[in-house]
Design a protein around this nucleic acid. Structure first.
Lengths: 215, 215
DNA sequence: GTTGAAATTAGTACGAA
DNA sequence: TTCGTACTAATTTCAAC
């Protein structure tokens, strides 16, 4: 369920599929913008908000769906109200050449909302939601740690989710600045003023070349 | 847009709202289960799949929406297809007593898909999506690092998103095990066998008590 | 890509169980 | 509360332009 394969975000369910598919124009983007905020809007209303005819809206809507640009429509649920009050991030170090097993085990854990393979100190980050702290602890110690592919874990709790956007679009630009904070248009790029010491990119750990290979 | 306030996941837009609201029963959960997989299903079809009448489905559907259990419906878009091929996680150390400013600045950055305040070595984790690595670099060095509230950042790239579920429900239990991997029902809890050394819970950093206070 | 009309479906309002 | 039905409004489909 909801598993992704191979390269980042390439899980369309059609393994052999390659190519650009749809070339998205400004109207496609506008459609996506509306749909991310109201996934249940009628196509008629969508057409009006985007400024095209209903028939075109149906055509483009279908094309976006068929081409996999829109993967699904979903309800955004309040986890706390639904009974899962605690969220944690678990950073996992995966044993070399056991990635396939790790993926398979994760697929068996419905409590895992998100899993990404990352560069840096750890190999993967997973997000889990549970009813309470004890349940998080139990999951990490009893189920995650018992996976042979898992070499080590590091858990942090989420104290507050400040921002959660359904997804980001290329058309998302910085919102129009207010008069108080607007910069002059001719402002030079800030690159020269960047305090470089503030930033640190973390390189990949050793033993990652086998990431998509099998044991 | 899409900002959350105060306590974890409590952003309902109704600041004074306190209390349990709806008491969710099994049918509510079933409704949520259907809706997370198909957010555009008609209420009639929903009623059929859940096994209640059309009228009841409307009532419960509206109640879930009005009570904030369902926060919104949204389209799940393929970021790569939409033109944002690179995803990164940025771990941010926030200067003490500047949380409010940090939040305000984040709200101005539409490229940020997710931001959570965490325990552990860093104070916050944000997820950003950009067209390429250079754009990530530019965002982190030019915009994030120039926020006074940001003391330091650490960036890792996401190489693959293995799993991404719309959300997790309490009713999600471990999927029915296959014959090959099923355990006997009387299996003792694995607690005694846990290799505790594998796990490490990370405590909060110093200076976090002021998290919700202002400068 | 657009408009307009037919067919279908959705949303609402009742009384009854 | 939930169900069943009937009524009205809206949406989707399909045609021709």
């Amino acid at each position: 369920m909801t598993e992704m394969s191979g390269a980042p975000s390439s899980g369309t369910g059609v393994p052999g599929r390659i190519g650009i598919g749809l070339q998205l124009d400004a109207i496609h983007m506008k459609i996506l913008e509306v749909l991310r905020e109201n996934g249940r809007i009628s196509v008629a209303a969508l057409a009006e908000r985007v400024g095209i005819s209903r028939a075109s809206a149906y055509t483009r809507f279908e094309a976006l769906r068929a081409d996999g640009v829109i993967k699904r429509f979903t309800a955004d649920v309040d986890h706390v109200r639904a009974g899962l009050g605690i969220t944690a991030l678990v950073f996992v170090t995966v044993r070399q050449q056991m990635w396939k097993q790790f993926r398979a085990q994760l697929a068996q854990m419905p409590e895992v909302e998100y899993c990404a393979i990352t560069t840096g100190q750890h190999d993967a980050m997973i997000q889990i939601r549970m009813a309470d702290v004890a349940a998080i602890h139990a999951l990490v110690t009893e189920r995650l740690a018992s996976i042979p592919a898992v070499k080590a874990t590091e858990t942090v709790f989420i104290l507050d989710e400040v921002l959660k956007r359904p997804y980001v679009l290329p058309s998302d630009r910085r919102p129009a600045a207010t008069a108080r904070t607007r910069r002059p248009p001719a402002d030079p790029p800030a690159q020269a003023n960047v305090p470089l010491g503030k930033m640190r990119f973390v390189v990949a750990a050793e033993g990652r070349a086998d990431m998509h290979r099998e044991p």
